[in-house]
Amino acid sequence: MCTADGTTSVCTKHYTIDPRRDLRNALAGIWKVNVDVHANDGDYVQTDGYTTFFMKRYGKLTVNASPEPVAKGGTITATGKLSRANWDSHDYHGYTNQRAYLEFRRPGTDYYESLGYVTTNSTGVATAKVTATADRYWRYEFRGTMTTSAVKATGDFVDVR
């Protein structure tokens, strides 16, 4: 679709990509956009690498903080799983050896604070232990890679008594 204003035209093109049909895992990463423009008078312009973007596999992340409730001074174990879309098999597999940042939020606030990270194991599981000091919401955050989207788990509330 193009719109013209005097000697200037603006053209856009939208593409729909079906991961089941169009993508394989090897295609995740940086994609280049090449542009070919042909004018009515026969003139044309070709631009290879006009811009780039990342085609990323979708990530999923869970968390379960337990026990619920927990005694003050007790140990909370936060377990989560990081997985990502597998475009070859059309399902999700654990994403191994990735940093999952453990974060907490105090009730009544809307921001999370990071305590550091743990590395996911061979099945994409992250496990961290913290001391229970007060009621908190707990979650993991994965900050993404060149091939996989960033994702945050939904916070899991732990009542400290």
Score class of each variant (00 low, 15 high):
130 V>E: 08
12 T>I: 04
61 L>C: 02
85 A>R: 06
139 R>Q: 02
142 F>G: 01
48 D>N: 15
20 R>G: 01
104 F>N: 11
115 L>T: 13
100 A>L: 12
111 Y>F: 04
14 H>E: 15
20 R>V: 00
114 S>M: 02
60 K>N: 12
98 Q>W: 06
88 D>M: 08
99 R>L: 02
115 L>V: 07
38 H>Q: 11
160 V>N: 10
139 R>K: 11
48 D>V: 05
84 R>F: 07
51 T>F: 02
88 D>W: 09
68 E>K: 15
77 T>S: 12
36 D>F: 11
140 Y>F: 14
56 K>M: 14
125 V>H: 08
5 D>V: 12
126 A>V: 01
18 D>F: 01
89 S>M: 07
102 L>R: 09
146 M>T: 14
19 P>Q: 12
115 L>E: 12
58 Y>K: 15
42 G>C: 03
30 I>Y: 06
12 T>M: 04
107 P>Y: 11
50 Y>K: 15
142 F>Y: 15
156 D>T: 06
152 K>P: 00
126 A>S: 03
102 L>H: 04
101 Y>M: 02
13 K>G: 01
83 S>I: 12
137 Y>E: 03
106 R>P: 00
43 D>E: 10
16 T>Q: 11
5 D>G: 08
57 R>E: 05
120 T>I: 04
102 L>F: 08
47 T>D: 09
67 P>N: 03
52 T>R: 05
147 T>Q: 15
68 E>D: 15
83 S>V: 08
121 N>P: 02
121 N>C: 08
23 L>W: 11
4 A>L: 08
41 D>P: 01
34 N>T: 07
81 K>F: 04
42 G>D: 05
29 G>H: 07
41 D>Q: 02
81 K>Y: 02
39 A>Q: 02
40 N>C: 03
128 A>E: 12
94 G>N: 10
153 A>P: 03
95 Y>S: 05
132 A>I: 12
160 V>G: 09
16 T>P: 00
125 V>E: 12
95 Y>V: 12
153 A>F: 06
45 V>P: 00
118 V>A: 09
23 L>V: 12
137 Y>G: 06
104 F>M: 04
77 T>E: 12
85 A>H: 05
114 S>D: 15
90 H>I: 04
68 E>N: 14
86 N>L: 10
111 Y>R: 01
90 H>V: 03
86 N>W: 06
153 A>N: 04
139 R>C: 03
114 S>E: 13
84 R>E: 14
154 T>D: 04
98 Q>E: 14
120 T>A: 07
15 Y>L: 11
82 L>E: 01
60 K>S: 10
15 Y>Q: 08
92 Y>E: 14
107 P>K: 10
153 A>W: 03
89 S>V: 13
112 Y>T: 11
145 T>Q: 07
89 S>E: 14
14 H>I: 10
46 Q>C: 00
76 I>A: 06
87 W>T: 00
58 Y>F: 09
150 A>N: 14
16 T>G: 07
67 P>M: 13
33 V>F: 07
46 Q>E: 11
106 R>H: 09
